[in-house]
Design a protein around this nucleic acid. Sequence first.
RNA 1: GGGCCCGUAGCUUAGCCUGGUGGAGCGCACGGCUGAUAACCGUGAGGUCUGGAGUUCAAAUCUCCGCGGGCCCA
Length: 1060
Amino acid sequence: MLREIESRYEPLSLEERIEDFWIKNKIYSISREKNKGNKPFFFVDGPPYTTGNIHLGTGWNKVIKDVVLRYRTMHREYLIDRAGWDMHGLPIEVKIEEKLGFKSKKDIETFGVSKFTSECKAFALKNLDEMTRQFKRLGVWLNWEDPYMTLKDEYIEAAWWTMKQADEKNLLFKGYRVVNWCPRCETAIADAEVEYAERSDPSIFVRFRLKGSGDDASILIWTTTPWTIVSNIAVAINPSFEYAKVKAFKEGKSEILIFAYDLIEPVLKKARYEDYEVIERFSGADLIGMRYEHPLTDLIPKQQEFDHSIYPADFVEMDNTGCVHIAPGHGPDDFDLGQEYGLPVFCPVKEDGRYSEDAGAYVNLNVRDVHERVLDDLDSRGLLLWREEVTHRYGHCWRCTTPIIYRATEQWFLKISDLKETMLSEIEKVEWYPEWAGRSRFRDWVSGAMDWCISRQRYWGIPLPIWICDSCGDFKVVGGKDELRELGKIKGDIELHRPYVDEVEIGCSGCGGVMHRVEDVCDVWFDSAVASWATLRFPSMCEDFERLWPADWITEGHDQTRGWFYSQLGASVVSFGVAPYRSVLMHGFTLDESGNKMSKSLGNMVEPGEVISKYGADSLRIYLLASNAPWDDLKFNWNEVATRNRMLNILWNVYRFPLPYMILDAFDPRSVDPDTIKGHLRVEDRWMLSRVNSLIKRLDEAIEVYELHRAARAIEEFVLEDLSRWYVQLVRPRTWIERDDPDKIAAYYTLYETLKTLTLVMAPFTPFIAEEIYQNLVRGFDEDAEVSIHLCAWPNADEKLIDSRLERDMGITRELVEAVLNARQKLKRKLRWPVKEVVIVSGSADVRSAVEVFEAVILKQTNTKKITVLAEDERWERLGIEIVPDPSKIGPSFKKDAGKVIGMLKAADAAAVESALKENGSYVLDDGITVTREMVSFREVIPDDVSVSDFTAGVVYVDCELNREIRAEGFAREVIRRSQEMRKEMDLKMEDKVDLTIVIPDAVVVELISPWIDHISSEVRAAKLELGVDLACSGDTIKEWDVEGVKITIGLSRRRSEDE
RNA sequence: GGGCCCGUAGCUUAGCCUGGUGGAGCGCACGGCUGAUAACCGUGAGGUCUGGAGUUCAAAUCUCCGCGGGCCCA
């Protein structure tokens, strides 16, 4: 049986109730189990990082996933959909360090690595629970019970296995390179972990004295990192530039400088030089090999061991001085240049950013605080030409926001440079949504990729599975736990985290020595890189991997181009030589209302929970989906969420409105025979069924290519336009029929089928409200129906029911009705008052056809007695015409009589003139004056009680002339409507009967209404009705109304039923 | 500085690929309906389509150069 429902859409309680229902009945797992053995759909969840709460962007991400996965499930595909969690790495370490008040790695060592990593683990697990709860509340269905977690041994083994693959293919190597280094976290960080932000630094011009120049000439360099001067080894120039030797004058002194010729003016002007003369000009190539003296050599004894001279480099650009200071230990370009020319890598900076003994006088100073000291030292030696402050973009550690430094260290790398070609060709084989995500954006990023530094000098991460021999230096990569236990002769289990694995010693097979693990952990991006096989439990289990891999689909935000799309591709090409995914949807970012990015520091973050508690998860979901194309950035807008909430409320009302009638009539859809009912369907019913089937088609087309916004908008439009604003309005009177009537059943049937189908297709988008409606509408009747809507199959569009001609005709019909309503409004004629006639003038055959098909609809919706369609050349007889004489034609012909002719024309019978002109081309006026066709034109004259309105294919005229019949009906309907309002005020039930007294002190109106008494009685459910001019008005409620200037008093009493 | 994307009414957007009178929704104003009713519907006002240049008979749409925003990189 159907049940009546709450009058208001209350998403919060509804969604809570539905979530309980899902849990209690294990709907999620049944929905997945059910399709076991069917075509698989292998989805890999991009793992969110377990730092705390989910935000709007992560919510959007999961909602996109959820819609697609629910849709696939309804298509009876078998999903592989383990949720994933990224649980290692610096962000969590930093949080724990903050919590424990740590300042450096030393604090961690003192505290104890095992205690520290268990804190990290506990923190990650706690956040995992909280975030899972939040995702579930959004209605996101993934395998939350058995997610993949990067901290699990099983997962770590997948990473180790991959690392071993890399080693076996000679793609893993140890290198001494300049890397991004965070002096606070004391670790290397990957390019992908560097975030750029504005920062102010000194911008300095420094002289390096040339050796043996004779004239005390200096080469002029520029830098924003004074601390690297300490490690200077060389100067680079561009051999194709022109350089100059300049004598510069300032405050009565002069000096000799060498730098780029084109930059003389700006540099000397900036440094406040009064004048200069160019002594010599030469090409950059002429400078190569010249030697200079390190500026601080007296303070840094180690520098005396190095030669300093000038080298050519293409990367030198024509800005600043055109001479670049080179410190191979502190810059990637510098390092590469050093490698090319065999320069020493001088890196006198320790892990914590302080100078080592090699830095001489600077030992133990922190490179971040040393700027002033270096500048003073340069200045006192007369080597600082100019200094100022500049604001520029500078790299910072992604987690602790400390400015990074470049530092030459020994690190472990994956040799991406060898794989680039394969990676690029694999990109081509992947389907990208949108297409440019792969074609342009990702391609560009991969093209510029360098070898991947995967080692981190930290604690909480996947330990690098590399053991090095203390004696011979050989290394071994361990591919899994069993291998480790065997090699390390471990009895029992071992946790694959630091510090436990650090203690494992392995015998060296080469020299018999002892091998110890490299102390590093993995770059956390390497963790998620192996997700596509780790989620299938490969390599510990191979079956699923062989059957399912690579992934059918993944989706993440466009920041993941450099992140997960890339790391997965790299790891996969290392392991298998192919891309790990078949299709990728790249989605956008969530921005705040003014289009700026959401960030904690700006205080403009919006949390999904906040939105849900106001409007519910369904509103948020449909908003997120309908608002943008998935790949565009989404500007969050509260107002728009509210609008979606309203849309769902309208859906709720549409669903609620027929229920009381259906219940009263004990309507049971199962007892309706579709074949029999077909004969009773009205055209509007067939239209509705056509529309809903077209909707299914539109959704299929859109979802297939991930145009989720089109799909969501199609649903919204259907609910608002087709259902609420139109079909429900048409069908209402039929539901009020009290007897058993096939016309009513046809309406019920149509409404029922439409709602049922609609909720099915809405299920992926708004899973809560869809479930709620399904439970009543479908489960309410049918115990055998699926327990949940989310176990149902996606409906197939029934082509037989789709009638595009009917849909087009109805489109025209709606336009016509709107035009008529518009016209009525111009004359302020309320809909309650019928009009005599509507005349449509149109040359369109489609209009004629629409009126033929939907005449009854138009009559009813416009409350008109008659519709007439005229062709363009026909004229409705109620329209008059008027002659418009053309003085420019009449004047020349009639000269001084022209005025008279014009007057006569205006007085003439326009219709007679027109027909005469049409037939003979001329018309003879009273005085025998003949006028011809070109002398006049005609203008339509619209009577006062006729109103006009345009529509796309023509014009409608509405004849609002009042007559007795219309006045009678108008007053009758006024009485009905007033009585209904009183019933409402008295809070009567729909089936309650009343006694009605109507007093109108105007005998004419009473007489007008009299014939309508039976109709009024039945409309307001009156058992007894009295109408008169001077009756005593009685009733529980008595009210006086003013209707079009007529006083009407209505008395209303509820009739007690016999047994009361 | 470079790559990719976005910029249409106060707000959110359709249209752009394939050039031919810019459509919606929200908000606002006015009205209607009243057995969906603390709901619903209609009408109206509101646009130098981010600025400029070019191609063309014709540009929101194609091309180029700016400006603003986002992501990524240097």
